[in-house]
Nucleic acid binder design. Structure first.
Lengths: 197, 197
DNA sequence: GTTGTTGGCCAACACTCGTTGACAAGCGTA
DNA sequence: TACGCTTGTCAACGAGTGTTGGCCAACAAC
């Protein structure tokens, strides 16, 4: 019986380096293999420890994923950005964030095959993306819809480029992607919504 | 030693109903569970036959997937469609096609976690989508890029709505989605490409 | 009616998985 | 020194996997 779930202010443990190694290996594995093929044994092998350690520190495979998928999109504040450049700014940010490490890839790969992953994506969407959209779009009540549209475009490109590796999407340069996608995202963010009859 | 791989003109076999039942069950399972969780045993159970039959008829799990993911997007000819309505037409078509059966869902779910799935998506992209795009876009040489952009938007929305089931995307109506996405797709298809320096 | 082929089920194979419990070495404290 | 906690390894469990081969009944051809 251990007690330590809530406190974020624990003193450093001797095993912190191991815990971190496990987490890093887990992120890589989830990113490359998805939930099912990312085995605890493989994670342990990458982290150079025994599989049972993973269980001890993270309780279960689900727990490991929960820990490995704690994500900060690092979204830029759009306060100091001209309203009409928000789209380009966001597209470029997502491209960099995606290539920075495997976390987002892991999130998508798991989200597609495992409910816990889809939940996690929704959480990130709700807590990090929607508030930012609400700050720039005309009517805050439309923020969820507009954010969903934004995600559909950005996530779709990421899916093609980083997960499916569709050749034409892989071969596009950053500037080219931004040039094409930015107007789309900009419209989803700030344009008047279309009439639907 | 059986010989029958190439011929598309075989006489009907007594086991055709069973083969079809297996294929249908496989599509459902792949759509719901992805590649790894869709077990041959589960497919066989759904089709009410023995797992070994699946092996006999489709050789292996990979073979089963190959057979189950033979997909016809049923894309409409855009010849009789006004050029400026192509975007709306396509978006609406994809929405219907997606909800028609589980095939596209299966394709995406597997594509994300299994190389064979990603390959299949690329094949469909190349053989069915790119030619259609080439027929309506200004410069046929740009067709792969423009098709990739189209896919990024359409697939992204499908991912949110049908796979991840992100609530705001699920709650949108068909008309609303078309109204938002059609201009985007239209631009990817026919607008002059942006300058990239 | 006999024979060969097809459709189907059953039992088992070798393997991998997540998970568990026992046990040894290292460390801090009294 | 002796104790207790932490970190780590090892071996095993039960379950589920893809896949294989043997066997039996129904059908087709002669």
């Amino acid at each position: 019986m251990e007690r330590e779930p809530a406190g974020a202010d624990e003193k450093p443990r001797r095993s912190d380096v191991t815990r971190a190694a496990i987490l890093e290996a887990a992120r890589d594995r989830f990113a490359v293999d998805g939930y099912d093929r990312a085995t605890i044994r493989a994670v342990a092998r990458d982290a150079r420890i025994d599989p049972s350690m993973v269980m001890r520190y993270y309780g279960s495979k689900e727990g490991l994923f929960a820990a490995a998928s704690a994500i900060d999109l690092g979204l830029p504040s759009l306060a100091d950005t001209p309203r009409e450049e928000a789209g380009a700014r966001l597209v470029r940010h997502f491209l960099h964030r995606w290539e920075e490490d495997g976390t987002l890839n892991a999130l998508v790969r798991v989200g597609v095959t495992h409910p816990a992953g889809a939940d996690r994506i929704y959480t990130v969407f709700r807590e990090q993306l929607t508030p930012l959209v609400a700050a720039v779009c005309p009517d805050p009540a439309e923020a969820p819809t507009r954010a969903a549209l934004l995600v559909s475009q950005v996530l779709g490109m990421a899916l093609n480029r980083y997960v499916l590796k569709l050749p034409p999407a892989v071969e596009m340069g950053h500037d080219e992607i931004v040039a094409w996608l930015a107007p789309t995202v900009q419209r989803y963010l700030t344009a008047a919504g279309p009439r639907v009859g």
